[in-house]
Simulated scan of single mutants.
Amino acid sequence: MCTPGLTFVASNVLDPAKTLDEKYNKFYNDEHLPDVLASGLTKLALRYKNINTESKMPYIALYPVEDASMTGSEAAVKLIQDTRKSKTFDGEDIYDYINFDIRRYEKIQTYEAYQQEGRSGNERGRTIICVGMEPGDEADFDEWYRKQHLDMLGMCRGYRRCTRYKNMDDQQPRFLALHEYDCKAEDVPSEQIKQVVATEWSKKIVGEAKIFDRNVFELIQAQGQTEINL
């Protein structure tokens, strides 16, 4: 049985003086995402924008795949090569304008928080909190997620689901959690979340983490079979 995976791409404009966000987003939305979907590597393409305008990771693109091994396939390598020359940038090499950080993951857990009347359970959250972590004790870290942390987050207002991944190339932080909320980023229940991470177990896990990286993103583009979840 295949293990589902995710191609995670963080990107940013190299020189804002040379490339405006408007042109960058036109390339991504009108040219690149359709090319990715046409390649057959994924059925869904999602883009998010960081609410922190000073972040080194202003945009991310997520491409879930049915088989994690597809993320490093010959087709994936060919897609990268074929899309280097951009029509939006008049045939110039897109890597001269945009920096891409590509990471490959395999899925390790999906947690569905709740279903309300009239909802199928497939609705996508408008906001995603992306947490990268390199734990001190991997077994304790996994047990914390499965036995306490997600159940408590699931009681927070607007919490939809969490999808957890492990990096396939041992890039640190190796573990990625994508927490989806139904609300806008400004309405994420920060006070409730503070209570969740105030438990002794939570403080131990976060305190022992070698890397803890948290970013908040809002969904800006969804193409392909948008009923699919991560």
Rank of each mutant, 00 (worst) to 15 (best):
residue 1 M to W: 04
residue 1 M to R: 09
residue 7 T to A: 12
residue 7 T to N: 12
residue 10 A to H: 03
residue 11 S to V: 02
residue 12 N to F: 11
residue 12 N to T: 09
residue 15 D to V: 03
residue 16 P to I: 03
residue 16 P to N: 06
residue 17 A to E: 14
residue 20 L to T: 15
residue 20 L to N: 12
residue 22 E to Y: 07
residue 23 K to I: 13
residue 25 N to G: 08
residue 26 K to E: 15
residue 28 Y to G: 01
residue 30 D to E: 15
residue 30 D to V: 05
residue 30 D to M: 09
residue 32 H to F: 14
residue 36 V to E: 02
residue 37 L to Y: 07
residue 37 L to D: 07
residue 37 L to N: 08
residue 40 G to F: 03
residue 42 T to L: 03
residue 45 A to E: 07
residue 47 R to E: 10
residue 48 Y to H: 14
residue 49 K to D: 09
residue 52 N to C: 07
residue 52 N to W: 06
residue 55 S to G: 06
residue 59 Y to G: 04
residue 65 V to F: 02
residue 66 E to A: 12
residue 67 D to A: 03
residue 67 D to V: 00
residue 68 A to R: 03
residue 72 G to M: 11
residue 72 G to N: 14
residue 78 K to N: 14
residue 83 T to M: 10
residue 87 K to E: 15
residue 87 K to R: 14
residue 88 T to E: 13
residue 88 T to L: 08
residue 89 F to I: 06
residue 92 E to F: 08
residue 94 I to N: 11
residue 95 Y to K: 10
residue 95 Y to P: 00
residue 99 N to C: 03
residue 100 F to Y: 15
residue 101 D to E: 13
residue 102 I to W: 11
residue 102 I to Y: 07
residue 110 T to L: 02
residue 114 Y to S: 13
residue 119 R to L: 11
residue 122 N to Y: 12
residue 123 E to P: 07
residue 125 G to S: 06
residue 126 R to D: 09
residue 129 I to Q: 09
residue 142 D to F: 10
residue 143 E to Y: 05
residue 145 Y to P: 00
residue 149 H to Y: 10
residue 152 M to I: 00
residue 161 R to V: 00
residue 164 R to C: 01
residue 167 N to E: 12
residue 169 D to T: 08
residue 172 Q to H: 07
residue 173 P to G: 03
residue 174 R to K: 14
residue 174 R to Y: 01
residue 174 R to D: 00
residue 175 F to P: 00
residue 176 L to S: 02
residue 178 L to Y: 05
residue 180 E to T: 02
residue 181 Y to V: 01
residue 192 Q to C: 04
residue 195 Q to N: 15
residue 196 V to Q: 09
residue 198 A to P: 01
residue 200 E to L: 11
residue 201 W to M: 02
residue 204 K to T: 11
residue 208 E to M: 05
residue 209 A to G: 03
residue 211 I to R: 10
residue 212 F to I: 06
residue 212 F to S: 10
residue 213 D to E: 15
residue 214 R to L: 12
residue 215 N to G: 00
residue 215 N to L: 11
residue 217 F to A: 05
residue 222 A to M: 09
residue 223 Q to A: 15
residue 224 G to P: 08
residue 228 I to S: 02
